[in-house]
Amino acid sequence: MNLQPTTLQKIDEVITHYPVKRSATLPLLHLVQEDLGWISPEAMEWIAAKLELQPINIYEVVTFYPMFRQKPIGRRHIKVCRTLSCALTGGYKVCAEFQKQFGSQPGAVSADGEVTIDFVECLASCGTGPVVMIDDDLHVKVDLARAQQLSAQIKAGAKARSTP
């Protein structure tokens, strides 16, 4: 486990927010995932030890909550809302467009390792559908043209990195 010093600091701080250590399970999982990108079996054991729990206590939480990942994802994470209001305004088409742009299926990492597309449930911005979250940023009213634009930006970012 190679967590950055700032992550370790945040972990120690967040545990103090609760009278019972176990409550820090979700915050620790978030912090570890933000740092390492995913939750490995080793990470689960580490968190369990940190909170004086059994690894199963962490494992059952990781498997319950959709946001925790047990394998690495692409460098950018594209989440397209699947639920009704977005679907009514074209969410399915938008998801298909991202799939076409990156040649990958929902849940899988694209061949070049750049993106993972997920078709997720309601993101609580239904009035501006279709909505898409890319990493931590919400994009609203994403029609096909906007999806293409966003894809181009992601591709340009990838290119910039590979040609220093």
């Binding site: 979700l26 909550y65 946001m67 925790f68 449930e121």
Partner: peptide, 21 residues
């Protein structure tokens, strides 16, 4: 922070989640 599960909106599910379960 929750982690993507709708049922955390239900108040007792929320409490379990806040307890780290």
């Amino acid at each position: 922070r929750g982690a993507g599960a709708y049922i955390c909106g239900e108040e007792t599910g929320l409490i379990e989640s806040l307890e780290g379960k």
